[in-house]
């Protein structure tokens, strides 16, 4: 698999963010380190960014994937808001991956909007990393 096409050699650029009033950052900090150890270029939006500022950082930094995490039940408003802003900024190709305390019914709603993953607590890091690689590749194909 490795080195067989140009896409594989590209390093994934990923922005991790908590786009709401939520300071529970254990998960994002662990993920940020794991993405970095997996060879990705990782940006962290810091605490309390708005959905708009997350989208702007994503565009300015030309990332492939935005990984969003929330533990405060605001995922149904905040995740789609990031999506909306990316669209507004003409960067709808940037992939959004979600995670946190997300009830199963909400997971389906988010998937429908193109926000994928929506991983719950206890998901193995490798599974999340694999998913990010998959959606990043999807974006690269789209961009070509």
């Amino acid at each position: 698999m490795e080195g067989t096409n140009n896409n594989m050699k590209r390093r994934i650029r990923i922005l991790v963010a908590k786009p709401a009033l939520d300071g529970h950052d254990r998960g994002v900090l662990v993920l940020a380190k794991a993405f970095r150890d997996a060879g990705m270029e990782v940006l962290y939006a810091g605490l309390l960014p708005t959905p708009e500022s997350v989208a702007r950082i994503a565009v300015d930094e030309d990332v492939d994937v935005v990984a969003l995490s929330l533990h405060n039940s605001a995922h149904l408003s905040a995740f789609p808001a990031v999506k909306k802003w990316l669209k507004k900024l003409g960067a709808d190709d940037i992939q959004i991956v979600g995670g946190g305390i997300i009830p199963p019914a909400d997971r389906k709603k988010l998937e429908k909007l193109g926000i994928t993953g929506n991983f719950g607590p206890g998901t193995p890091l490798d599974q999340v990393i694999e998913h990010v690689r998959k959606v990043a590749k999807k974006k690269w194909v789209k961009d070509q």
């Binding site: 709401a20 009033l21 939520d22 309390l48 708005t50 405060n72 039940s73 605001a74 149904l76 408003s77 905040a78």
Partner: peptide, 18 residues
């Protein structure tokens, strides 16, 4: 709720959904 914990009113843009 989170807006109260951060010193924001219910009418704040940042409080939406929370």
């Amino acid at each position: 709720d989170m807006p109260t914990l951060y010193g924001l009113d219910a009418s704040s843009d940042r409080a939406h959904g929370e």
